[in-house]
Design a protein around this nucleic acid. Structure first.
Lengths: 345, 345
DNA sequence: TTGTAGGCGTTATCAT
DNA sequence: ATGATAACGCCTACAA
């Protein structure tokens, strides 16, 4: 039914192997037959069969995506579309396509990964997250299968290619920014502690607090899921404290948005009553009211670099491990102001 | 290197075909050998090679996703993660995985599709959008390749399996709702006119307006991209009219959010000064201020149904065409109020 | 119930 | 410069 290499060969009056060489652009093939074969391909509307090619090659030109579990909720976060867009771009440049397995739970996702890998569906995978004690990483390492992680690996940092931001420093820097604005009661609203990124950001915050000689208070640190509701729960607790914070470091824009909403509901005005700064600089930060000051971690580039490194690794297995740190920058908008002062806008 | 069916066969002391049968759960195979083979698979950590299987089968157990072009911008819209989540769920239930090509421009995407299809990488594809004069549809139909579209096909509606909402009716209904609230100057802010959905929603709006004996004014109808900025441009124009509208039907939540922001900036209060209602009921609608009244089109289900129908079609080619209409419902929050009245909250 | 053999569409090795 | 031929790993008649 479908037109194969043999059909082309027949029409062009050559052997299948010759056609194959033309496809591969093998240099030692006469221009004449090259033309003839190409004409035949054109005439028949021939397109190479990737599957057959993969089988012969043991290479699929496609890379697998591994999402964090509970993909249901997490996928709501604009972070993922954006990394994927970056990965897609990096992949496209090298003519790779993307493959996703479809599990929801952690177990299903793991099983999907195994099938993807052992089933030979992909040449390498990129992990869109980094969590502690991840059996995915363990598995990949044991099989010595090419992979790169977006984020900081929880172990074997020197041996795992990864692309990350310096979250520790970023978090420290924004906390210091708040301190410079005169805030002394600064709270931290983090995401799920299973993710390495959460801890990095927490540590940066803590370090800044201590460095400044401010007391580090446990009741100022809370952890929720990376979602609006998470943010909302956290802020309710925080504000019921005897000495509520005057500024918030929030680990994710979406949480910050949730917080903003809750705050407005409670009649608090940002930034006059309380300052808020968060991470990711997702599109929404611009249109929130007030527009959020946020750390732009360049999500797109995170994905882009991940794809490029992965492809490099798979195509050149003895390539050395790489760590790529994507620079961040703080985008100041209107959610932070000096402590105790009322902003003019 | 990797363990194949032959290795298992050898260890279990049977022929490869027997192993194959065990995998396929062929009934006529003795329980005894079945056990033996399974043990061998276990011991060797065998996993079937999908590629080889696909080649033999001419079936990949994976379905392709086709995004609208300019994937860069559009992908920002929470609509896509959510449909994909639905598709993923539907696919997972039947053990299918997902495949995405990686182009950005319309041309690249088309080329990616062709490779996906002719390259035998997928058993069917789902179009995540429906636009006018889409060469993707033309191509798929000509090749008689299984596909389903999410949205309403621009042509051959009776011959193309698709899953859609009744956007015409929904749009009509919310416009009537606004009219019931006493509004007489109602504007429509739509998305890109190349998408069928935009037109459906526009038509519903128009019909409601005319039915109510209200004048249909061209200057009340504008079209922008499905993004925040789009919404912002539109509202600026609308408000500078001599008789600015008192209510807005907006074709997309994200645009509505943009509008809300702009409105606040201009000192207008929603819903007192102007009512806003939009489509999609994306998560953000809840935390916007005010929370948006929006048409819940059940995006997840759109994707879920699409995947299920596609799989049904591919597995049973003489299956008849289906049209699936996913019910919508209007979720009233706090962005609409009676014309001329000031809301109490 | 199980084994044998040919084929799925390519690539790659060896000849010529 | 090109042609045969044997993989790649699995499936499926056809045989036994």
């Amino acid at each position: 039914m479908t037109v194969t290499i043999k059909d082309v060969a027949k029409l062009a009056n050559v052997a299948p192997s010759t056609v194959s060489r033309v496809i591969a652009n093998n240099p030692r093939i006469s221009d004449k037959t090259k033309e003839r074969v190409k004409a035949a391909m054109e005439e028949l509307g021939y397109h190479p069969n990737f599957i057959a090619r993969s089988l012969a090659n043991k290479s699929t030109q496609s890379i697998g995506l591994v999402m964090p579990s509970s993909a249901d909720k997490v996928f709501q976060n604009p972070f993922f579309p954006e990394v994927i867009r970056g990965i897609s771009k990096g992949a496209h440049e090298k003519q790779y396509s993307l493959h996703m397995s479809t599990g929801e739970t952690e177990e299903e996702i793991f099983e999907g990964l195994v099938q993807m890998v052992q089933g030979g569906r992909v040449d390498g995978v990129v992990l869109l997250y980094s969590r502690f004690d991840d059996k995915v990483v363990t598995y990949l390492r044991k099989r010595n299968f090419p992979f790169v992680v977006i984020g900081k690996p929880y172990k074997h940092i020197e041996e795992i290619t990864h692309v990350d931001n310096d979250n520790y420093r970023a978090s420290k820097e924004i906390t210091e920014y708040l301190i410079e604005l005169g805030h002394e009661r600064i709270a931290f609203v983090g995401g799920n502690l299973n993710f390495v990124v959460t801890v990095d950001r927490l540590l940066g915050y803590e370090n800044a607090i201590r460095n400044a000689g401010l007391p580090y208070r446990d009741e100022y640190v809370s952890h929720e899921e990376f979602l609006q509701e998470g943010g909302q729960e956290a802020i309710t607790d925080l504000l019921s404290l005897e000495e509520p914070p005057t500024a918030l470091v929030v680990a994710d824009d979406l949480m910050a948005l949730g917080i903003l909403g809750k705050l407005a509901e409670m009649g608090k005005v940002v930034p006059d009553d309380i300052s808020v700064i968060s991470f990711n600089n997702v599109l929404l930060t611009e249109i929130s009211r007030p527009p959020l000051t946020s750390v732009d971690i360049d999500i797109f580039r995170l994905g882009y670099e991940a794809a490029k490194s992965l492809i490099q690794i798979t195509e050149n297995p003895n390539e050395s491990v790489k760590r790529i740190i994507v620079p961040y920058k703080i985008v100041k908008r209107h959610s932070c102001s000096e402590a105790g002062k009322v902003s003019l806008l």
